[in-house]
Simulated scan of single mutants.
Amino acid sequence: MSSEIRHLLVIGIGAGDPDHLTLAAVKALRRADVFFVLGKGSEKDSLTRLRRDILDEHVGTGCRVVEADDPWRDRSQDAFAGYADAVHDWRRRRADVCEQLIRDELAPGRCGAFLVWGDPSLYDSTIAILEDIRRREQVAFEYEVIPGISSVSALAARHRINLNRVGRSVHITPGRRLSESLPNDDGDIVVMLDAHESFRHLAGSGIWIYWGAYIGTPDEILVSGPLDEVSDRIRRVRAEARAEHGWIMDTYLLRLHPDGAEG
């Protein structure tokens, strides 16, 4: 058996727009011998197609792609009870799949790549999963991370706003913990992974919302304004989009405007 080490690239490919790829990401794509793609079922086929479009454009149609099914994740838990256990169980089973891909589909001395939506360091499991596999010591490899444009950065750009205001902080939280993050008089709040539309509980707060779904894709939806005025609209278009596509990924910024006029 060869003693050469396997090498992996974790490449951030942006929030959905193929033009979000950085030059570093394009160079990394061209280094890889094989690309690993975990499919998320027929309802999210568009995400796999976007990855393949990126590879066709920047690597060529003859590149080697190995697909595997992403393990099922229990999403029946409510916003708090059992959530962490469900995520840890899913990550363990996902690590099993990735370990097999690396062992069986990547020869020693060769380079493989995982294409990660947004930025690999922000609300993504790939880095943690690779660390889990390394701790198992069943397959040896090294890896590097290439940053990407996150949905948070893309959201701010599409709404033409700054994420932060002078001298103030920005807090990033999953939707299930939004209530713990309020009030946040020192800064603004970015909310991700909010399947339960937690913003609906903030009526009368004077908060503005900058909301976006499918950011950077042809299906992009943007809504902004005082939360009391646009909350129902967001909930309506969100439900319509989810029904049409079978899934939704959205992100939003909450900002308290003292005079109610900034935006």
Rank of each mutant, 00 (worst) to 15 (best):
A203R: 15
S181R: 14
L155N: 04
I133G: 06
I161E: 03
D219Q: 15
S231T: 02
F199A: 01
E220V: 13
R200G: 06
Y123E: 05
P120R: 00
A203E: 09
R168M: 12
E144Q: 15
E180T: 02
I221T: 14
A140T: 06
F141C: 03
P147A: 11
T126F: 15
W208T: 11
A128V: 02
E131A: 13
I234F: 01
E229Y: 01
D132P: 04
R236Q: 09
D228V: 13
R176M: 10
A239Y: 03
L122N: 00
A157W: 03
R177F: 15
I221P: 05
P218N: 09
I215H: 02
E197L: 10
P218C: 13
I149S: 07
R136H: 11
P120M: 01
F199W: 11
D185A: 03
Q138H: 12
H159M: 07
G175S: 04
P226H: 11
F199M: 06
E220L: 10
L178C: 10
Y210R: 14
L202P: 10
A113F: 15
N162M: 08
S125E: 11
P147F: 09
W211N: 07
R158L: 08
V190G: 00
A154I: 12
S205L: 11
S151L: 04
G204S: 08
C111Q: 14
I234A: 01
F114A: 03
G206R: 12
R177I: 07
I146M: 13
G148H: 07
D186A: 00
G225F: 05
A113Y: 15
E229I: 06
V190A: 01
R233G: 03
V230H: 05
Y210F: 15
S231M: 07
V152I: 15
V223N: 07
E131N: 15
I207K: 08
H171R: 14
V230S: 10
G212R: 02
R165S: 09
E137M: 05
D188V: 00
T217G: 06
R158A: 06
L193C: 08
I209R: 08
R235D: 04
A213Y: 07
V166W: 05
Y143F: 15
T126P: 13
R136I: 08
D124H: 09
A156Y: 08
H201I: 02
S181D: 12
F141Y: 15
V139H: 07
L122K: 02
I215R: 02
E229W: 01
